[in-house]
Write a protein that binds this DNA or RNA. Structure first.
Lengths: 257, 257
DNA sequence: TTTTATTGCGTATCTTGTACACATTAATTT
DNA sequence: AAATTAATGTGTACAAGATACGCAATAAAA
């Protein structure tokens, strides 16, 4: 279901979508040791938001989250995880007190509509390779682009909390689930995999112990030595043993990093 | 906000409450080695439900959950944890196909109202001492009572999944957070505490190793030896060091059980 | 007094996490 | 071509933690 006319959506959207309830996606992108997050901006406003949307009356909330992610990134079949539902009373209010917001054309159009209501938002997170995604703004936004997680712009609503909670959840999930299948190329080196973990955890790890843990998990398949990047010993190339990878995903044992 | 008239609520409730969104509470009760869950039943129907309710337009979702729990149990200031939001399309549907449901007086009254709509439900869990709670049915229910977790009655909607998810979440949280402050009397013995853990985890633990872990956490204060229950050596009485207990709650290290 | 079941406290062992040493490799430098 | 350099691959030592289990102390019952 595509929103083709913003004003029609503002006026009649409640026919197709559930009011008072939205979904916001913390879409984290990784590439070459850099962790970014996808944010959208309203026209004529400074603040940025997580990409969000509404739930069709005929789709599940998981489906809605998948659809929103696909609309913003063009990517389908991404691992998307519900992590928290945000329902504080003041999650939108602080912004209504800002005068520059009241003059905003889009906000004036929304005022009084079904969108101008107290809204509970279900948070989802995804972890993708940002080089494979092409950010597309939705009809409400002037821009949609990646931001380095370490240098975020001013955020609207309770989205700082949403981002923090998403990152905390990912780091906790990392202790239980392997990461990398959707983020690294088909073939990769162990240092590349380690770099991913170090970026997500925001700290350095010991090479040798990291290798040991991955070998214990048994999710790596080593190929013939190849890639010669730098001016030193060339590392082996690996792929994920996808069957084993998925076994470990459903496993309950946790690792320490 | 109390619902005094069921039919007024069915007709005008949407003025005060958010439609399409509900809260269901998995209220787990423990006492003397028995784990129970609080369930409510519709009049003239076999199926049982988790106690639930709607969110006032002027309260946070956490507040709504607290209020619902207090209405059902009379208990305030209980540790209540949001654990998952359920939004499958078919979470209510399977029941609509049952003929005995269509003849139900309450269901017939609801048909066509704002309550007869696709609903997303936010799940919360609580862990309390069931001997301190007095179950009270709400206006929709004929009965509200404790059920042994091992012998549940037939459940409506997706509530079997909700209960399973709640139990899985509690068992996972047990690895990180201590349990017992709201469940045991002011003074208790270590075997009593261990029994609580064994009941929640549904398996036996080694006495000596359990004691060691509790001592490591440092949340126990030993009193003068007293309680003489059985016909053998009488165990020491302990209390929680509440300050330390709360420190450990916010800590991130996890224990293995 | 003896028996029995339970509690309290300890130790041995195995597993796991962590720190770090050293050999291997490949491009660069001399 | 040999030496240098910086990275990768593998192994080992130590510490911390988890687990298994032994044995004395106690209190009520036999």
């Amino acid at each position: 279901m595509l929103i083709t006319d913003v004003h029609a959506f503002i006026q009649h959207g409640y026919r197709d979508f559930i009011p008072h309830l939205s979904i916001d996606c913390a879409i984290l992108g990784y590439h070459d040791g850099i962790l970014k997050i996808l944010l959208t901006a309203w026209p004529d406003l400074d603040g940025w938001c997580l990409p969000g949307g509404y739930i069709s009356r005929t789709e599940s909330i998981d489906h809605a989250a998948q659809r929103i992610l696909e609309e913003r990134t063009g990517l389908a079949d991404v691992f998307l995880q519900q992590y928290h539902t945000f329902g504080q009373m003041n999650r939108v209010l602080p912004l209504e007190e800002k005068p520059e917001f009241h003059d905003n054309p889009l906000y004036r159009a929304i005022r009084g509509s079904w969108l101008d209501a107290r809204t509970v938002s279900i948070g989802y997170y995804a972890l993708i390779d940002f080089s494979r995604a092409t950010p597309r703004p939705d009809e409400f936004s002037r821009e949609c682009r990646w931001w380095d997680i370490r240098e975020l712009p001013p955020l609207l609503f309770d989205h700082p909390l949403m981002i923090k909670t998403a990152l905390d959840t990912i780091r906790k999930d990392l202790q239980v689930h392997p990461v990398g299948l959707q983020l690294l190329p088909e073939e990769f080196t162990v240092p590349e995999l380690q770099r991913l973990y170090e970026t997500l955890l925001n700290r350095t790890l010991d090479r040798r112990n990291f290798m040991k843990k991955m070998q214990q998990l048994g999710i790596l398949i080593r190929h013939d030595r190849t890639r010669s990047i730098g001016s030193h010993r060339s590392p082996y190339l690996y792929s994920f043993d996808e069957e084993r990878y998925r076994e470990v995903l459903t496993d309950q044992r946790n690792m320490s990093f």
